Computed example of a mutant assay.
Amino acid sequence: MTPLSLTLGYVPGGTPAKWAKIWAERHPEVTLHLRAVAAADAAAEVRGGAVDLAVLRTTADTAGLAVIPLYEEMTVAVVPADHLLTAADEIAAADLDGEPTLLPLDDVVAWAGAPGTPIEHRPETTEDAIELVAAGLGALIVPQSLARLYHRKDLTYRPITDAPTCPVGLAFPEGPQSALIEEFTGIVRGRRPGSSRGQAEPAPKRTAREKTLAKQAARAAAGKVARKPGPTKRGRH
């Protein structure tokens, strides 16, 4: 018999560790495989069945998939550590006006009208673009998690206060789901162990002895109330 398993894909910068830990605690008999997938391929991997679910950026084409919103990431500008923009703790989009910028082919921000002046060459990946930022070719606009993932000592980043955020979601095929996928999506939604979908965890059933003791305690309490003397009448003076 083939052992039960579930495969969860995640894009660069995705953070599936929290849910993987909970899954391992609740279902040690079912292996959860974590598989890194490229941002551009994540949705297709789910549609094609290469992974059962995926943590991906919802700026991708998610047609045919159900998506649970997870969180919104801050958008930042990656620049050399000695760049003028590092003088402030955060910047506005207007601060990038006229600044050369890099737009990799796997861009996930999808910011229409993004500030800056894109250079003609488009690097294949965000990781390649990071190398070009270090070489002084321009700034790079990315979600904060990617700036952290590709951190280098000679680079830094600054939040762009008026930039659109970068949404992240959990995607899986539309339609009826397997019990394993339903269980995993329940974990992501915060469902507690043993609870039915969308319901709080039921109270534990009492044993026969606990029921008997409870009845005895109730009868004893009722007897005390019945025997309690009423208030005495005060005589007239």
Rank of each mutant, 00 (worst) to 15 (best):
T101V: 15
T101S: 12
S178A: 06
P16E: 10
G48Q: 12
G175C: 07
A179R: 10
L103Q: 11
L155M: 03
A222L: 13
V51D: 05
A43K: 03
S195T: 04
S5I: 03
P118N: 14
P167M: 05
G49E: 06
F172V: 05
A222I: 09
G9K: 07
T86F: 00
P164I: 04
E73F: 02
I119S: 09
A221D: 15
D52V: 06
L56K: 12
L105K: 14
V55S: 02
A226V: 14
H33Y: 13
R209K: 07
A217Q: 14
L103F: 11
A218P: 01
A66V: 03
T15C: 06
W19A: 03
G186D: 00
G9M: 07
D89H: 04
G98C: 13
L96R: 11
A135G: 03
E120M: 14
S195E: 02
L140V: 03
P202I: 06
A54L: 12
L140D: 04
P16L: 09
L180C: 01
P80Y: 00
E183Q: 10
A226F: 11
D95E: 14
K21M: 10
L85Q: 11
R57L: 15
T101P: 08
P229A: 12
L137C: 05
Y10N: 09
E182L: 08
P12Q: 09
L4R: 15
V51H: 07
R122H: 15
I91M: 08
R191I: 00
T75I: 03
A17W: 13
D52N: 14
L8D: 04
R227C: 08
R189P: 02
P16R: 06
D41K: 09
V30S: 00
V46N: 03
